[in-house]
Amino acid sequence: MTQTRYAPDRGLTVRMVTTMFLLGLLYVVFVGVLIALGVQAVVVLVLAGGLLLVQYFFSDKIALFAMHGREVSQQEAPELHGLIDRLCALSNTPKPRVAIADTDVPNAFATGRNQKNAVVCVTTGLLRRLDPLELEGVIAHEMSHVAHRDVAVMTIASFLGLVAGLMTRFALYTGLGRDRGNNNGPPIGAIILLVSLVVYAVSFLLTRALSRYRELSADRAGALLTQRPSALASALVKVSGEMARIPTRDLREAQPFNAFFFTPAVSGRAGAGLAALFGTHPPLQRRLDQLSQIAAQLGRGA
């Protein structure tokens, strides 16, 4: 992988390794329980593995298709290409494919399993609302996700949750939970359902915690690369404020892709109560506080 000039983040690396280890351990225990219960889970594992491979190798195409994004040439979007060219030169990273999604929801995302297969997509709503320095901060943030291989790690981390979710549906739809013909034995179906739900909940919380930290890491890396944390903070405030003006229907359509976005597509107050635990992104104030600290370290105004 190309050595980039994005600031390394040992905290992110430690969290990635720890999360993958815990999920792997949980996976081994989960499969062990299924085998002990006499469950033939091969079909579920093969199906989950197939979905994982599709998501891993085609995440860029899937995301663009889902968000109605299209790749744009240098002639179609010269300013956007120019900005990304400058960031690539500054960060010593290969140039990703450039795309624009025609939606008023102000956001951006980067996806792709590695730097050679990456795409950065911005919405027309974002382009209309941000000035060049703010846009630079947002794209630097997104490109850091690719440099740190966040997409690949999060795709693999989601595997256990996918398996547990499929097992839960399998138990429900096949009637295992009713334990037919097993009146005198332990409630195997109910145990499978309970274990699957617990495994799904634990894997969900672990991956969400990792997702929130990787957003903080991307903010930090983008701000240090551009040396303009105040521009990124301004973009965060502006985009978060504009979300409240977007029609609810549009936000609901975008919400399934929150994990990819620069900021989550939500309206109202986010980050309060349990939302901070279940969210894909840290609360806005947490991100702004970190950028303010970086600005102070760089000797600049917040």
Rank of each mutant, 00 (worst) to 15 (best):
L194W: 09
Q285S: 09
T155G: 03
N92F: 01
F58L: 15
S217M: 01
R220P: 12
Q55Y: 05
A259T: 11
G38L: 10
Y213I: 10
L25W: 14
G11L: 10
L25A: 15
H81T: 06
Q55P: 00
A140S: 04
K238N: 11
D219C: 11
Q255H: 07
S234R: 03
G222H: 05
Q74I: 15
L205H: 01
A140H: 02
I139Y: 01
S234I: 02
L288W: 02
R269K: 08
I188Q: 02
R249K: 14
L216M: 12
F21Y: 09
L176G: 03
V98F: 14
T168I: 11
N92W: 01
V29C: 10
V122S: 05
V72G: 02
S217V: 01
N114A: 13
L225P: 07
L52S: 07
T280S: 14
S267A: 10
S217D: 02
T123W: 06
G222W: 04
L53A: 11
L298M: 13
L194V: 15
A118S: 14
Q55I: 10
A41V: 15
I191R: 12
L83M: 14
H145I: 10
A265C: 06
Q40P: 05
A63V: 10
A270Q: 11
L160Q: 03
G177Q: 13
S158D: 02
M143F: 00
V31D: 04
M143L: 12
R228P: 00
L206S: 02
A190V: 13
I62F: 06
R228S: 00
T280W: 02
Y27V: 08
T111K: 14
F170S: 05
P8S: 10
H81F: 06
Y173A: 14
